[in-house]
């Protein structure tokens, strides 16, 4: 059984965070991350405050820290970049444990690390508490062009199907003793990718036929989308609003 695209990150639940409409959550996330990104790097207290906010949200949503930690590997490449900055950057230098590090580089590295991490954790919270379908409905409500939402919807639906095709091809290859070892073997793997494209495209054509057969005339019907209640909006703005308060407070106190 393949791990489905949707249930790899999504954790079904019935917390207040789960119940918020998806478009409210997306906007809240965007607003929160914008505040984080706009915060000066040396406002250390503010970043601590943001972290506390996210931890509270995670606790409310019932998303365990281990789940978040495991998903955070996506930011590893940039963590390494951030750790390099103190070495690479110019300007005045300080000695830390025998290493000569750039002061501005240290700050820049911290800046990327802190903001990137907060952004990733916030995004993980969104993905963990919102299933793919609600997210698509949410995007539609946020006036993302309908055609784009439709394409995303087909992608979400078929990513697993195409992924399974790819996996089956690999199993078929390996069952006949194929083990990729050198560049010459790239041909075999890429041929699989070529076949995968043909399969995917032809499936697209068949899906189109199936859609026509059920009265598709160029636009998808938007299936249910209950508007968000005022209370939802209030709850949704809690996170970015608190972030703004923290940002302003640290700025005023400094």
């Amino acid at each position: 059984m393949s791990g489905g695209l949707t249930h790899r990150l999504h954790r079904p639940g019935d917390s207040p965070v789960h119940r918020l409409p998806a478009h409210v959550k997306v906007l809240a996330l965007l607003a929160f991350v914008l505040v984080v990104v706009a915060t000066p790097a040396d406002a250390f207290a503010a970043f601590a405050g943001y972290a506390v906010l996210l931890a509270t949200a995670a606790a409310m949503a019932g998303v365990p820290g281990t789940v978040i930690a495991r998903r955070m590997v996506v930011e590893v490449p940039f963590v390494v970049f951030a750790l390099l900055l103190p070495v690479l950057a110019g300007g005045p230098r300080v000695d830390v444990l025998g290493l000569s590090l750039s002061e501005s580089g240290l700050l820049a590295g911290w800046n990327i690390l802190a903001k990137g991490t907060l952004g990733v954790v916030a995004s993980i919270l969104l993905a963990a508490t919102t299933d793919a379908r609600s997210l698509l409905v949410g995007l539609a409500r946020l006036r993302v062009p309908a055609r784009l939402v439709e394409i995303a919807s087909f992608m979400v639906r078929y990513a697993d199907v195409v992924g399974d095709d790819l996996r089956r091809m690999r199993i078929a290859r390996e069952s006949r003793g194929f083990a990729p070892r050198h560049l010459g073997h790239a041909r075999v793997v890429a041929q699989g990718a070529g076949a995968l494209f043909i399969r995917s495209y032809e499936r697209g054509e068949r899906v189109h036929l199936a859609m026509l057969s059920r009265g598709y005339a160029g636009s998808m019907p938007l299936v249910d989308a209950t508007p968000a209640a005022r209370a939802d909006w209030l709850r949704g703005t809690a996170l970015p609003a608190a972030a703004v308060v923290i940002a302003v407070a640290t700025w005023a106190l400094s």
Binding site: V156, R206, A210, M211, P221, V223
Partner: peptide, 25 residues
Amino acid sequence: IVFQDPDDQLFMPTVRDDVAFGPAN
């Protein structure tokens, strides 16, 4: 028409959306 491969036939994110696709059209 019920097509041979259900993965071609069922293209919406959930079963309910898919069954609603035709009548909504």
